[in-house]
């Protein structure tokens, strides 16, 4: 398994969707490859940061506008 092979299938590995035999092969490559270990660690972290950054909440004033919009809409339905 080369670095190219490892990075190509990294999403399945990180998401726990990789067959055990392939995961074991990938782990063996990681043991001897510092660039791939760094890539995996930063890929995981980037994914986690993307998740946190995406957890945005609707501003309170927007929620109030939405409630008014729905109330007005339902009155006319």
């Amino acid at each position: 398994m080369t670095c190219r092979d490892v990075i190509e299938v990294l999403a399945d590995f990180v998401d726990g969707a990789m067959p055990a035999a392939l995961a074991a092969e990938l782990q063996r490559h990681l043991q001897g490859c510092e660039p791939c270990r760094a890539y995996l660690a930063t890929y995981r972290k980037a994914r986690a940061l993307g998740t946190v950054a995406g957890r945005i909440e609707m501003p309170a004033e927007m929620q109030a506008r939405l409630r008014r919009f729905l109330a007005d809409t339902l009155r006319t339905v």
Partner: peptide, 21 residues
């Protein structure tokens, strides 16, 4: 990422081992 013909990572060593995680 970019790769050498043998499948290893291409690029500056310091960059490909950079781990800010």
């Amino acid at each position: 990422p970019t790769f050498l013909p043998d499948g290893h990572r291409a690029g500056d060593r310091a960059f490909v081992v950079a781990d800010w995680s």
